[in-house]
């Protein structure tokens, strides 16, 4: 059980969804098939919708009048609270699928837990989480389908899928770190207790059962737990992140307040 500031918690979930959406959207016009292009674009769109709802709510909690756009476009790298997993470069298609499998399974289990959480402080995200739990079930299904097909496919597809799983695995540990304690500058949002199904340890247990089953069915090896890179929830990011943020924000920075 750990205690954390609600604003920071919601901001972290919103940033996860936003950055995952931005990375996923890089596949548009580059996916191996046109059907996959549409599928990845739609998954990115779901994630962007989650990000908008979560960041709008984070802005309300913060109480400084920042909108979803302010939070997405007018923060610098070190102010983002997403896990490093979602900012990793896409790599080849198999690496992207490995990332999607691990992240969608995490999101789905967490959102399912949040939609039923007892803590009254979490009531504000329950509605978003209930909606997002259903959306992410489709993302899990999509990633599972591809993991099975590539893992249990040709020698080359198996080799690449395993390489993707191995590359991304260390970054999955950060998904299950206890949320960082409050930073002090937010006074009004209250503390939350991450207990029950959303307690990080319990969540990882559920996640491992799902992921290990999929890897086994796909004839893939579950990597050893070793290196555990982390820091995204405290604003520490990888080198690739700066380029992503630069591209995401360039239009808004050049033309503040631009609208379609």
């Amino acid at each position: 059980m750990s205690s954390s500031d609600l604003y920071g918690y919601v901001l972290g979930l919103g940033d996860d969804a936003l950055i995952a959406a931005q990375r996923m959207a890089e596949w548009v016009t580059r996916a191996p098939q046109i059907e996959e292009d549409a599928a990845l674009a739609n998954i990115a769109l779901d994630l962007l919708g989650q990000a908008r709802a979560l960041l709008s709510y984070a802005g309300e909690l913060e109480g400084l009048g920042r909108s979803e756009d302010d939070l997405a476009y007018l923060r610098d790298e070190h102010e983002f609270r997403n896990v490093q997993l979602v900012e990793l470069p896409n790599g080849d298609f198999a690496t992207t699928i490995a990332k999607m499998l691990f992240f969608a399974a995490y999101q789905h289990l967490l959102y399912t837990g949040l939609s039923a959480a007892d803590d009254p402080a979490l009531a504000g995200i329950a509605g978003i989480a209930a909606k997002a739990a259903k959306e992410t079930a489709y993302h899990v299904d999509h990633a599972v389908t591809w993991t099975l097909r590539l893992g249990d496919g040709t020698d080359e597809s198996h080799r690449r899928m395993q390489a993707g799983v191995d590359e991304v695995w260390p970054f999955t540990h950060e998904l299950f770190e206890p949320p960082p304690a409050r930073t002090g500058h937010i006074k009004t949002t209250g503390d939350i207790e991450t207990t029950g199904d959303i307690e990080p340890g319990a969540l990882r247990g559920q996640w491992l059962r799902l992921v290990e089953r999929v890897l086994r069915d796909a004839t893939l090896r579950r990597p050893e737990d070793g290196w555990r890179p982390a820091g995204g929830r405290r604003g520490v990011h990888t080198e690739a992140f700066g380029y992503l943020v630069g591209e995401m924000q360039s239009l808004h920075r050049a033309h503040p307040g631009a609208r379609w």
């Binding site: 769109l45 779901d46 994630l47 989650q50 978003i128 909606k131 959306e135």
Partner: peptide, 8 residues
């Protein structure tokens, strides 16, 4: 009530 959070 939106169908999907990101419904365009």
């Amino acid at each position: 009530t939106p169908t999907y959070l990101g419904c365009p």
